[in-house]
């Protein structure tokens, strides 16, 4: 059963502290586990219903950008770094070589013009808490000038190696998770996008 608004937990940050409000765990009694053949006690269930509060820290601009239709990345601009100029997507707060803070850049246009599929997989399986429609089409995307290969999902179209794809963003009701970013094959129309998503 989905939780009602009164059963959910919400959090703000104020004065450098988390300020939770609402319900963060719902107690549920444990139940005995019996062996049906012997009638003897084998164990006990331990139900858990908890909500974590998780900081995005320096990656927050990436996850906030998705809801605004922006794909933010980072670039090392340290003159003294051997790998200066490397663009990272996934977004890395620090350069993995010099450990200086990277510069946040907007690579939305670069993604719209150069994204192509490096690898992919289609799976009909998922784990608990999955929110994506199945089958899930995992894709890894290469971008021109980017040294890494982002993982995402293909929302419209069939994946193939080197196929051009375009990013789409959950701008109408963002969840502020990586699922706000998906990709579609070139030529997809606005009307084919999943609910809430825009180019």
């Amino acid at each position: 059963m989905p939780k009602t608004e009164n059963e959910k937990g919400f959090v703000d940050v104020a004065n450098g502290r988390y300020k939770p409000k609402g319900v963060f765990h719902i107690p549920e009694a444990n139940q005995p586990i019996f062996n049906k053949d012997t009638g003897k006690l084998a164990g006990i269930t331990n139900p858990r219903d908890m909500t974590y509060m998780h900081s995005y820290g320096g990656e927050a601009p990436f996850f906030e950008g998705l809801g605004k239709g922006k794909l933010m990345a980072t670039r090392c601009d340290n003159e003294k770094c051997d790998t200066k100029g490397s663009i990272y997507q996934p977004f890395r707060i620090y350069c993995p070589d010099c450990l200086r803070k990277n510069t946040v850049i907007d690579m939305t246009d670069l993604a719209k013009t150069t994204a192509k599929i490096h690898s992919y997989i289609i799976t009909h399986r998922s784990g608990a808490f999955n929110s994506l429609p199945k089958p899930i089409k995992f894709i890894n995307i290469e971008f021109e000038g980017v040294v890494t290969i982002l993982m995402s999902v293909l929302a419209v179209g069939e994946p193939e190696f080197d196929k051009k794809v375009l990013p789409i963003f959950n701008t109408k009701s963002p969840t502020y998770t990586i699922t706000d970013l998906r990709f579609v094959v070139e030529g997809t129309s606005e009307s084919e996008l999943p609910e809430g998503f825009t180019f």
Binding site: S126, V153, I178
Partner: peptide
């Protein structure tokens, strides 16, 4: 943040 929400299925992350 970057992988788990995508299906919550580890096999997919290796399968690519």
């Amino acid at each position: 943040d970057w992988e788990t929400p995508l299906g919550h299925i580890y096999t997919g992350y290796y399968a690519v």
